[in-house]
Design a protein around this nucleic acid. Structure first.
Lengths: 216, 216
DNA sequence: CATCCGCTTGACCGTTTGGTCAAAACAGAC
DNA sequence: GTCTGTTTTGACCAAACGGTCAAGCGGATG
């Protein structure tokens, strides 16, 4: 992942202090706005106001709405996939998956907007990260699927299709971020209480881990 | 659910043949467009064109974009929840849940746009169906949670929080509709093959049902 | 043929919004 | 203070879009 000199839109010029803080403020504001309103629903004006500057000023730092979106999406993606990449073939399968699921749930709790941003992009057909999904992500998933298949072969996991197991983990963990409004509506005031996230984690871990633990 | 005479926006006037077909065409087109583009992203023009009529003509049948959205959302919701309401307390728990999950997966496969429409609405904060979630849906879920808790009490299911089990089933089944683009990107050409949906169903059922089957 | 009424449409309007631009404000170097 | 490059902004533009309206169309009824 070395940054070649022809890396698009990234001149060697070092960012000034003021540029750095402003770009950061914009990206943070953009994450919130894009997550809640989607790409089409978000307006540059709203992002600018939330970032504490005027619209033309924002466009001085990013040349278009799409450019902001792309940047914040890319930045989010690597954070998002980091714990997945860390699944360790030499570790204990159940423990490895427990760690991964726990990490993912914690991320959904701490930064639900990142999850919503991603969900929005996918639901709308992944116009921006479609290529990434078909190349980098696919490669990564294929690799981890092999690991899971190996674990199954060793008898350390019940026989289960690795891809669908991965999808299931993604679905379940992200659900708590993407559908938080529905969850809050259904369980009422309980959702705010401090223990709720732990309770969710315990339930999810119980079902999935029991579901894939080898039985004899 | 009897339709009172003061039922909003629903006069007693019977719909003519042409009205019926046109309204149906509009709602079908609207489902597609809203699911892919979201509420803000969808345009009346696109819906009208897809329904085979002009924009003013569409607005002759529905008084606003929001009215179409509301209608198609409501219509979708009842279909969507029907199999959930049919969970039978007197049946065998594992078989009941198998039936429910299978039905839900089939719906996601047959009508992914309905799922995407719903997902979009929730992610954006459920501005239209927020009240419904907090009243009707909550009541229904509370009721079914009691059923699951009863099953657990009878020793017919492993001890598991009913709400989180329900969320997990929703998350997993809807994932195959909402995130189909990502799934297709990751598994490649396999996703198109006829057996893929069955394979997914088998994996999901295996994990969840093994996860909640009583162990001793 | 004339009338009526449900259906359809082209033309139009006001608002929102992404994006531009030229000029002003500012900051630092000398 | 002056000069130079960076940052900020008010004013503006063109396109897209939701929605309106008055006029046209067409088939059933008399």
């Amino acid at each position: 992942m070395s940054r070649s000199k022809s890396d698009e839109a990234q001149q060697a010029k070092p960012l000034s202090r003021i540029q750095e803080t402003n770009r950061k403020a914009i990206l943070e504001a953009a994450l919130d706005v894009f997550a809640i309103s989607g790409f089409r629903g978000a307006t540059i004006d709203e992002i600018a106001t939330k970032a504490g500057m005027s619209k033309p000023n924002l466009l001085y730092y990013f040349k278009s709405k799409r450019a902001i979106y792309q940047q914040v999406l890319e930045q989010t993606l690597s954070d998002w996939l980091a714990p997945f990449a860390e699944l360790d073939p030499t570790g204990d399968p159940v423990e490895e998956l427990r760690r991964y699921i726990t990490a993912k749930l914690k991320m959904s709790e701490k930064n639900p907007n990142a999850s919503k941003l991603f969900a929005n992009e996918i639901i709308h057909g992944a116009p921006v990260i479609g290529d990434f999904l078909k190349t980098s992500l696919k490669t990564l998933v294929d690799e981890k699927a092999k690991v899971i298949r190996y674990w199954v072969g060793e008898g350390k996991l019940a026989p289960v299709d690795p891809y669908h197991l991965i999808f299931m983990i993604w679905a379940t963990t992200q659900h708590y971020a993407d559908f938080d409004v529905q969850i809050r509506a259904v369980v009422g005031s309980q959702a705010g209480r401090p223990g709720f996230a732990d309770q969710a984690a315990q339930a999810v871990l119980t079902i999935i881990l029991n579901g894939i633990r080898p039985r004899q």
